[in-house]
Design a protein around this nucleic acid. Structure first.
Length: 260
DNA sequence: ATGCCAAGAAAGTCTTGA
């Protein structure tokens, strides 16, 4: 079961690039972030025509997450549980049933948190505390669980081309990394680092200052696997070349293959 | 790089991103 995460930075602006990538990459599941669309305006027929089931959790202008899946999507949850006041669309869950096992999927768009310090950074850290509680709850089911998306976290210095430029940034601050590790330490395996060591592996390049051409990137899109999911991991890749195409997102897809 | 590019909402030029 091929499961991808992709921050598309606006569905309207990414119809061509996203469609081309889906046709080539043929993921069974694609967890999308920053659809920047309300549910009613999401062009679901573009994906249904390709054989995908579509579930969205959108909002006007900003944020918004979606799941595309060739397998039926069951037990959909929209919004990160734990705060009824939170109106930002950053979390969606669903279950798919593969040939060998069911898999619980969480698609997430973790808050950026800049500028920090400040209220946006407080929101980021509070959101991560809430995510940890939800993750702990889901782990109790002891079925394969995949939490994938734009974490807006640079886990370690080797995950940035210029780590010194990010030292004071909400993506790399010690408090951010600590909150990320607290989630990991519930028992998750970060798929990419389970398979690939070393620097120069990125999932985001800024549109400005020729960041892509200079490979001035950061790795902030991650797939976290529960123990039951980690045991099924067969492959993990970053589709970096997508970033060099016409009208790209500033993020690229990251995907895993699970023996599910 | 405390905003070089991009997207969205809107019809000016903001806000947001990371």
């Amino acid at each position: 079961m091929k499961i991808a995460t992709f921050n598309i930075n606006g569905i309207k602006a990414r119809i061509q690039a996203l469609g081309d990538w889906l046709d080539e990459s043929q993921p069974d599941v694609a967890l999308l972030q920053e659809i920047k669309s309300v549910d009613e305006n999401f062009p679901r027929e573009l994906f249904e025509d390709r054989g995908y089931n579509v579930e969205t959790h959108g909002q006007k202008s900003f944020n918004g997450v979606a799941i595309l899946s060739k397998l039926p999507l069951e037990d959909v949850v929209r919004g990160l549980p734990g705060d009824d006041e939170d109106e930002q669309a950053r979390w969606i869950e669903a279950t798919v049933v593969g040939d060998n096992t069911a898999v619980r999927l969480c698609g997430l768009y973790l808050p950026n948190g800049n500028p920090c310090p400040g209220p946006k950074y407080d929101y980021k850290l509070a959101w991560m505390t809430r995510m940890k509680a939800r993750a702990a709850e889901l782990l109790q089911d002891e079925i394969p669980l995949v939490m994938a998306g734009d974490y807006n976290i640079i886990p370690q210095d080797e995950d940035a081309a210029r780590p010194e430029a990010w030292q004071e940034d909400a993506l790399a601050r010690p408090e951010s990394r600590e909150a990320y590790r607290k989630i990991l330490h519930l028992g998750f395996t970060e798929a990419f680092r389970a398979r690939v060591n070393g620097p120069e592996h990125y999932s985001f390049w800024d549109y400005q200052a020729g960041a892509w051409q200079r490979n001035d990137g950061i790795r902030i899109d991650h797939l976290l696997l529960s123990p039951q999911a980690a045991d099924l991991l067969e492959d993990v890749q970053i589709d970096a070349a997508i970033r060099g195409r016409e009208k790209p997102s500033d993020h690229v897809p990251v995907w895993i293959d699970l023996a599910a």
